[in-house]
């Protein structure tokens, strides 16, 4: 089991400069989300997290803006971009992704959360079919309910790169059915393995880390479902490795949690798993 960092950039920290009445403050007016993205990326690299998942939330930065910048700023980190419904056609998504695969030596992955598609599993399935179709075949023709392509298909040198692996966020049986049709891997948002679908696909389980930086109990690390000392948290999470390929760490806007995780929790989990 390894960790991935989940970035939901709808964070508030630094997005509006706090007044510092007695302090010379020369920060740019709109210092904010991008600075946090850079911090998070550097922290992930520092602690050995090899993949960053960028969510596409209306209150945050567009994932399609964050991921190209991240791919360029890193040499080995893999980046997963969440694709939502109101962004681009499948052909444009495939073409843009093909360029990112070329620029990054194939470090891009796709994520689809049915919530970002108003639950329209039929649209998602057709979207994925077309995006993969133009990636794999030329000429490619498709005539569906939502999309049509005639004589399509990426040509060399855009063609021939590995398709970005696709993960589907699974919350219910409909999501699981969709995932069984199109997913290369799945993401779940509970830490209860009994609730996880058994699709025979690699699985990522999301854990929210949110210890307050102002807390005096700096030795404690809390999560949405796990609160306790570093040992207790590690003890709670390590058994998940029996079924989870990844732990998806969501630290909100507290990027310093990434360092705390890397220094204190990750080694304890490693020790528990590997003895």
């Amino acid at each position: 089991m390894s960790e991935r960092l989940v970035l939901d950039t709808s964070w508030k920290r630094w997005r509006h400069r706090t007044d510092l009445p007695r302090v010379r403050d020369e920060r740019p007016r709109d210092i904010g989300a991008w600075e946090l993205v850079a911090h998070a990326r550097r922290a992930a690299e520092a602690v050995g997290i090899e993949e960053i998942v960028v969510l596409d939330t209306a209150d945050g930065l567009s994932a399609l803006a964050v991921v190209p910048v991240g791919l360029r700023a890193t040499q080995r980190t893999r980046w997963t971009v969440e694709l939502t419904q109101d962004v681009a056609t499948p052909v444009y998504t495939a073409k843009l992704s093909a360029s990112l695969q070329r620029f990054s030596a194939g470090r891009l992955a796709w994520r689809i959360d049915p919530r970002g598609w108003r639950g329209r599993h039929d649209v998602i399935e057709e979207f994925v079919t077309v995006a993969r179709g133009v990636w794999r075949e030329r000429p490619y023709d498709f005539s569906g309910e939502h999309f049509r392509v005639q004589g399509g298909g990426l040509d060399s040198p855009l063609s021939g790169r590995p398709l970005p692996p696709l993960e589907i966020v699974v919350r219910d049986e409909d999501d699981a059915l969709l995932a069984s049709r199109v997913a290369d891997r799945i993401a779940v948002e509970t830490l209860d393995p009994d609730s996880w679908p058994d699709l025979g696909l690699p699985l990522a389980a999301r854990v929210s880390l949110a210890s307050a930086a102002t807390s005096t109990e700096v030795e404690r690390l809390s999560t949405a479902e796990v609160v306790g000392t570093y040992d207790a948290v590690a003890g709670r999470l390590a058994p998940l490795s029996e079924r989870a390929t990844w732990l998806d760490l969501d630290v909100g806007d507290r990027v310093e949690e990434i360092y705390r995780w890397g220094e204190h929790v990750a080694p304890r989990i490693g020790a528990l798993i590997h003895g």
Partner: peptide, 19 residues
Amino acid sequence: PGFVHPWGAARLSAALQQL
């Protein structure tokens, strides 16, 4: 314009404007 959604384009563009 046919290949991107106006809101998606706005979100992508505004983020790049900020950066």
